[in-house]
Design a protein around this nucleic acid. Structure first.
Length: 294
DNA sequence: TTCCGACAGTGGGGTCGCAAT
DNA sequence: ATTGCGACCCCACTATCGGAA
């Protein structure tokens, strides 16, 4: 088992010592050859049989590749499509054909038994490029020198963001290093609070929505980003607004509804999120601020 | 003494698989 | 057939604690 190196979240670094890759929205996979191909998830789980289309990938024994398995749709990775098959060992042929995966390889910690981890990123990257890995289901995506342009392009293309890597950095297995910085595209939205749920804290999560023609449309639960002080403030605002029935236009699924305390939807909060899901819910939601209302 | 980084804990969307109802 | 629950995947963020500065 070879735990992959992890990136630290942060703002886009600048300077000639950095190189920039697009951030691919999929699952992290390490490939080892000893001598047969073995694919490992970040946790170390053997996932080789989940991605049979990668079985043709062949390299010398003692080689370790690091990359991301994605499902491409219109040229962009779709995590939601990948989710439909990523838990399945030996997926049915029809499923694998409908949702083919691509392994995007971005690092080479070992080659034929030679430890390349101590080499600077740029040299490992050059060795990786020399392998000429390109096939129907794998590729080595490009790296760029212009950080701001790469970041802007990632947003325009609807990608997840960029990962900045220090040219001189070593590969540190299993470590969350400051030499790799992930800069994610994110959005914010103002939403109405239609209820809340207790949890381990007094206020576990907010049930939020947006006002549309059909009424208050549920956008998901927001439990992240709430400090102890904000929790108290929100409870003080919400408890006087209690009402017996849900203010949402549609009945919420049981797993969202469970334990809910409904309120008049009068409190507006700003939430940050990664993307909207196909179901119209917030992905990676967290509270940014409670908006003052006159 | 103060500050920072690592870690545990709490929250999210979503899928699958299995058990209970 | 529906619901509940945990295990995995992807996470963000807060609070805490010990060691570095």
């Amino acid at each position: 088992m070879f735990p992959p190196m992890l990136a630290t979240p942060g703002p886009l670094p600048s300077g000639p010592e950095w190189v920039f890759e697009l951030k691919w929205d999929g699952v992290r996979v390490v490939a080892t050859f000893d001598p047969g191909l073995r694919l490992s998830a970040r946790s170390g789980t053997n996932v080789t049989s989940r991605y049979p289309e990668l079985s043709g990938l062949s390299l010398p024994p003692g080689t370790v590749l690091d990359g991301e398995v994605v499902v491409l749709a219109d040229g962009r990775p779709s995590f939601e499509l990948l989710a439909e098959r990523m838990h399945r060992d030996r997926p049915p042929a029809a499923l694998a054909a409908r949702l083919p995966v691509t392994y995007l390889i971005f690092d080479l910690p070992y080659l034929a038994g030679e430890n390349l981890c101590e080499l600077p990123y740029e040299e490992r990257r050059a060795r990786l490029d020399e392998l000429g890995l390109a096939g129907p289901h794998w590729a080595v995506p490009p790296a760029f020198d212009d950080g701001p342009a790469t970041y802007t392009a990632s947003a325009q293309l609807g990608l997840e963001g960029v990962v900045a890597k220090r040219r001189t950095s070593q590969y540190r297995p299993g470590l969350r290093s400051a030499d790799w910085v992930k800069c994610k595209n994110e959005s914010t939205m103002d939403v109405l609070v239609g209820g809340w749920r207790p949890g381990a804290r007094r206020l576990g999560a907010l049930l939020v929505g947006t006002e549309e023609e059909e009424g208050l449309v549920f956008r998901g639960r927001v439990g992240g980003g709430i400090s102890a002080a904000t929790e108290e403030r929100l409870l003080g605002l919400l408890e006087p607004l209690a009402r017996p029935t849900s203010p949402f236009a549609e009945a919420l699924p049981p797993e969202d509804r469970r334990g809910a305390r409904w309120v008049e939807p009068l409190i507006v909060v700003e939430v940050a999120y990664g993307q909207l899901t196909n179901a119209g819910r917030l992905r990676f939601p967290r509270l940014r601020k409670v908006l003052d209302h006159e």
